[in-house]
Design a protein around this nucleic acid. Structure first.
Lengths: 332, 332
DNA sequence: ATTGTTTTCTCAATCGTTTGCGGTTAATAT
DNA sequence: ATATTAACCGCAAACGATTGAGAAAACAAT
């Protein structure tokens, strides 16, 4: 096996006890400077690294965060994950990432794995079909706090960090109104998700309150392909064509943009476009798409902050949101 | 603290010894069926989960893989990471992901963290500036095998899994030749990376061997913005315009496509386009871009397979490659 | 020389699990 | 009744690190 250095080896080499070595390494005042120096030097020479298994068996908790993502290969989650990993490492935590694949059964399995691994806390994102929160509550009962992110339960009893969904939608609606749109095709995501509801409600309300005679057509797509098909279909109309296209997310924007290209319409001339996005998709089109930024990175940082607070000391359930801002492109 | 169930609690509740409980849970033949049943039932009722810290402290090794990525928020790595997580979990391993941010110092730090966490093996991707492989060798010396992926050292002494870079480039060149191109603008990545060299060499050779009078213009871009600027600049030429555009990677393709849109050229009419890609970017344009697929998923699976082999029993350094295939779109 | 006080270090228990070895029953054979 | 042999089960040590409590040394004070 690997001949890793342990406290014992150092202590034997130096002819002192294990506890002295341990304390010397942590600058415990009980240990004389002379011994401490000897110990630290040898430890460095031998590249001693404490065995996390042992440390955390003793300490009872492991500096580990569980991150449950719907899928890692997704435009939004990638930046979220990246941010979580960053912030967590800076706080001294490692991250264990598991994917639910939007599958209920696997979600439960993942939670079990988290428990087995004695994570200190869990960041979770529910699947569209999650209705039973018992597995999550079970974690809480075992003192493993859970913070939901992005796709969160409605229930106020849970910790949540969200993008400012309503605000983002309102911001987009404002831009649309200001542009003088009369006929808006708005594509939203899966109806069951609260993120969809929040964005939809705010969007619709803002548009209706704009007291302009704006026709609003709302469609729902659960993935990129559907958004593509749906948008293309609508854009094919010969008369009463939409003058503005709104996409609630990157997944949808990607599909809709493909449809726009195929339709032969030019933007912003023939149709105005605006979306809510993480930023990448809008930037690869020319002109760039105007969007309301919902940063996965910001959300990741917020989530880690919050879960660490919860770990340190139980918090009352809180619902936090990140800021959003309008990024102007040339599409509206 | 959390009142997690332990062997001890079960044993006390049942009035039997800890060892019996432990053995019963693993169907050890020494334990009578009756006791075993009692134990298992109580364990399930109490939702017993062995403490990984303790188990792996005892066993000496942890079922943990270290994954060092340049950055998690990248089109290719996201699918790679997702695949690694999947395969690893299926093999009973958890994955610890760390990001080097293409930064040498942080690379070393990450490796240290991996060692601290006693990972069983490491999947690594070197930064463009990595020249000193001592930290990696140190891991190997401690019996922690390292498999490099995608961006790998030239040295034959290391384990590597790569995309079939040369083959992918050749495949693309063949398509270009068959299309009868006379003037190809080809954009490649960072000159220092061996992945660039491999693709470039194969591409150039195939094109030159095609004994057609094909003009080949090669440019290098290190990121999406550069690719955009470079492509746009070239496409603005009034005369002697390229009839074909080749992009070596998704990062580049994204930038170049933006330039194509901006130039007002239509494809495949005005210019043919082909790239090497993971598949997402080509699919969001219409017509879809023809590309040679280099699957991050496939590479991830290969990498996990290989590292697990290495963990089970030391292997001679091996260089493996994934398959590639042509995915036909409408851009050429 | 005796006692008191620091300084410096060691002992031993502990976290939860695994496992070699030895011990106790009960069943079977002599 | 005694020896043999399974069938069950428990003891205790180990993995590596931490830590309270106490021991030993060093030094000063009486």
């Amino acid at each position: 096996m690997s001949q890793t250095t342990t406290l014992k080896k150092i202590s034997e080499a130096l002819g002192i006890s294990i506890s002295t070595v341990s304390r010397a390494l942590k600058h415990h005042p009980d240990i004389s400077i002379k011994t401490r120096k000897k110990v630290i030097e040898l430890a460095e020479a031998l590249e001693y690294e404490p065995d996390i298994n042992a440390v955390q068996l003793r300490k009872g908790n492991r500096q580990l965060l569980g991150l449950l993502a719907p899928a890692a290969n997704n435009l939004f989650y990638e930046s979220f994950i990246s941010a979580v990993e960053d912030s967590a490492r800076k706080a001294g935590y490692a991250v264990m990432i598991l994917q639910s694949d939007n599958n209920l059964e696997q979600e439960t399995n993942c939670l079990k794995l988290f428990r087995q691994n004695r994570v200190s806390g869990v960041l979770a994102c529910i699947t569209p079909t999650t209705t039973d929160f018992a597995p999550f509550r079970k974690l809480e009962e075992q003192n493993i706090p859970v913070v939901f992110y992005d796709k969160v339960p409605d229930d106020l009893a849970y910790h949540k960090v969200c993008l400012a969904d309503a605000k983002a939608a309102t911001l987009a609606a404002d831009v649309i109104l200001k542009a003088g749109s009369r006929h808006v095709l708005a594509i939203f995501g899966d109806t069951h998700l609260s993120i969809t509801q929040k964005r939809l409600d705010a969007f619709r309300e803002s548009l209706e309150n704009g007291n302009q005679q704006t026709k609003l057509v709302i469609k729902h797509a659960t993935n990129t392909q559907e958004a593509y098909a749906l948008t293309l279909n609508y854009l094919k109309r010969k008369t009463d064509q939409a003058d503005t296209l709104f996409c609630m997310s990157d997944e949808i924007l990607a599909g809709s943009m493909k449809a726009v290209q195929e339709s032969g319409l030019r933007y912003p001339k023939d149709i105005r476009i605006i979306g809510i996005s993480n930023g990448f998709i809008p930037s690869i089109f020319s002109p760039e798409i105007t969007y309301v930024e919902t940063s996965g990175r910001a959300l990741g940082e917020l989530a880690v902050d919050h879960i660490i607070n919860c770990i340190h000391q139980a918090q009352v359930p809180l619902s936090l949101t990140t800021d959003v801002r309008l990024v102007k492109g040339g599409s509206i």
